[in-house]
Every structure is written in structure tokens, then in C-alpha cells.
């Protein structure tokens, strides 16, 4: 979540040309949050690790250009979403080949997944959602963001975001019930 005190400190560091200090503080504060968002969208640690690197490097490359007109976290989340979508597009063939039941099996064997059967089913169901529904669901359900905040990240209208979330919830509930 947003941390105004830290954000102000990051801004102060940037204003005094201490970019690396600003970035270090940013990583300390937001790295975990960004990682878990990616992990919820992409499920597996190795994929999340790759995307996290890309997200942090993108943040570093553009930090000086950030205009502070919106919350720093909204900007991070936008970069995170874009990188996740880019990763999904790049690995479409590989990701599409994995069925929901295979994902459950992989999660059962995954040392970096500690959830129970329901959690495995939930994650498998999320992985089968279309990209936009998957991202809206992740931010609404797990991050508890308001639709207006999600709108800042994804764009589009609040109405369409609500519809995406509603469809995602229905599909997931159906999947978990029937599998």
C-alpha cells in the first residue's frame, strides 16, 4: 500500500541527486508488495522473479522522470501490470499449454507454494482467466484496491472494471466448486 512518509523521503533523495539512495529505499519498501502482485498474476516463483527484475529496472530507469502527480504506488502497479502482460504475451505458447489441472499438480510439487488444496484450485482458476480479468481480480480481491485506483492503473471505465471483476468471480467460484 501507499506509504506517504517513505514516498516523501524518496522524493527528497531524488531532489538532492541521491538517486541510488532513493532507489534503495524504494526497493526496501515496495519490493515485496510488487513481488506478491506479480506472483498472484503469474503463479510461479521463477516467472515472478524474472518480471520483478524487469519492473525494478524499469522503475530505476524512469524514476527521475516521475512527475509526482499521482501516487508512487499507482505508477509501480502500472509498470508491474505492463511487465506482467508483456511476459504473458512473450510466453503465450508455453503458458497456454499448461492446463488448470497441471497447474494444480505443479503447485502441489512446488516448494515455494504453501497453500492448501483450495488455494491451489483458486490459483489454477486465476491462471485460466483472460488477462484483464486476472489483473482486475488480483488487485480487487487480494490488494483490496478501489475501482478508481484500479482505473488509475489499467485505464478504462469503472463500469467495465466492475464487469470484469464480476465475470472473474463467477468463473473462479464455478471452477473451484466443480473441480
Amino acid at each position: 500500500m501507499n506509504n506517504p512518509k517513505v514516498d516523501n523521503q524518496i522524493k527528497a533523495y531524488l531532489n538532492s541527486n541521491q538517486e541510488e539512495k532513493a532507489f534503495s529505499l524504494l526497493v526496501d519498501t515496495y519490493q515485496k508488495q510488487i513481488y506478491y502482485q506479480i506472483r498472484r498474476i503469474l503463479t510461479f516463483h521463477d516467472d515472478a522473479d524474472d518480471v520483478l527484475q524487469e519492473v525494478l529496472i524499469k522503475i530505476w530507469q524512469n524514476l527521475q522522470k516521475f512527475k509526482w502527480e499521482s501516487a508512487l504506488t499507482s505508477w509501480f502497479f502500472r509498470i508491474t501490470v505492463n511487465e506482467c502482460l508483456g511476459f504473458i504475451r512473450k510466453n503465450k505458447k508455453r503458458l497456454n499449454q499448461i492446463s488448470a489441472s497441471e497447474i494444480q499438480n505443479l503447485l502441489e510439487a512446488d516448494v515455494f507454494f504453501e497453500g492448501d488444496e483450495i488455494e491451489r484450485k483458486l490459483q489454477a482458476a486465476i491462471s485460466q482467466l483472460p488477462d484483464k480479468q486476472r489483473i482486475v481480480f488480483t488487485y480487487k480481491y487480494f490488494e483490496d484496491l478501489k475501482y478508481e485506483e484500479i482505473q488509475n492503473i489499467l485505464g478504462g471505465s469503472v463500469g467495465s472494471l466492475k464487469a470484469s471483476y464480476h465475470h472473474a468471480v463467477k468463473k473462479i467460484e464455478e471452477f473451484v466448486t466443480n473441480n
Binding site: 541510488e20 532507489f23 534503495s24 526497493v27 526496501d28 519490493q31 515485496k32 513481488y35 506478491y36 506472483r39 498472484r40 516463483h45 522473479d49 520483478l52 527484475q53 525494478l56 529496472i57 530505476w60 530507469q61 516448494v111 515455494f112 507454494f113 504453501e114 497453500g115 488455494e119 490459483q123
Partner: peptide, 27 residues
Amino acid sequence: QKNSFATPENYFELNKEKVLSEVRKTK
């Protein structure tokens, strides 16, 4: 009750070092 996603040991600390060294390289 808890986060289902685990990470390798010291992942975030090591990742921070890795990213900072990348950043220095790009600098």
C-alpha cells in the same frame, strides 16, 4: 490466514543486491 506464496531463503535481500548491482552497471 497466511500468504501461500513462499520464496527462497533471503530472496528479497539477495534480490535487492542483485538489482542494485544491475543499476550500478547501467549507470
